[in-house]
Amino acid sequence: MESELADLVSSEFDRQVKLLTSIKRIGITLATALIVATGGFSYFSNAKQVSRFIGICPTYQQFGTSVHIKGGINRNGDASLRSLLYVASWSALRGNTTCKECYARLKANGKPSKVALIAVANKFVKQAFAVIKTDAPYVDGFVSVRQTK
């Protein structure tokens, strides 16, 4: 069934599959799942909306000014896609430079491993959204420069 779904997605969304698989450590299975779940990223205007839809966006709860509850991810979206992103984040630590730097920075700041891996999965979503919206293949280690007015 996965191969049939991959064939269907690659015939309809061929360009997007090629762009998503240009990101290191994103394979055909994760690319297909991202395209199917997000409608080819056509329903969203920014990466934060995609993260929120999938359910890997961090949430915080605050009541008043003094009571703070420890946050977590919202878990509103597709659980199987979230688990695919989490497992892919393990692999990203070995091959994706940006994700490796993100994980190392968070671990150096004292974050637990699972929290850092969810942040890497969120980074994957941001990379995927950027690649699709700019219609350009992924360049490992690319840093965008903001233009100041």
Rank of each mutant, 00 (worst) to 15 (best):
M1I: 06
E2W: 13
E4P: 09
L5N: 03
A6R: 14
A6Q: 15
V9T: 15
S10C: 09
S11C: 08
E12D: 05
E12G: 06
V17P: 02
K18I: 03
L19A: 09
L19S: 11
T21M: 15
T21N: 05
T29F: 12
T32Q: 07
T32R: 03
A33W: 13
V36E: 05
A37I: 02
Y43Q: 12
S45W: 12
I54P: 09
I54H: 05
C57V: 01
T59Q: 06
T59S: 10
Q61S: 14
F63A: 00
V67T: 04
H68L: 02
H68W: 09
I69R: 12
K70F: 08
K70D: 12
K70G: 11
G71T: 02
G72H: 10
I73G: 08
N74W: 03
G77P: 03
D78A: 00
D78P: 02
A79T: 05
A79S: 10
S80D: 07
S80W: 06
R82K: 06
S83C: 13
L84I: 07
L84H: 15
L85M: 11
S89H: 13
W90V: 06
W90L: 15
N96P: 13
N96M: 13
K100Q: 13
E101F: 15
Y103L: 04
A104T: 14
R105I: 01
K107V: 01
G110R: 13
P112Q: 10
S113F: 11
K114S: 11
A121W: 05
V125K: 03
K126M: 09
V131N: 04
V131S: 03
I132C: 05
T134D: 10
D135Y: 02
A136Y: 07
Y138L: 07
V139T: 10
R146K: 10
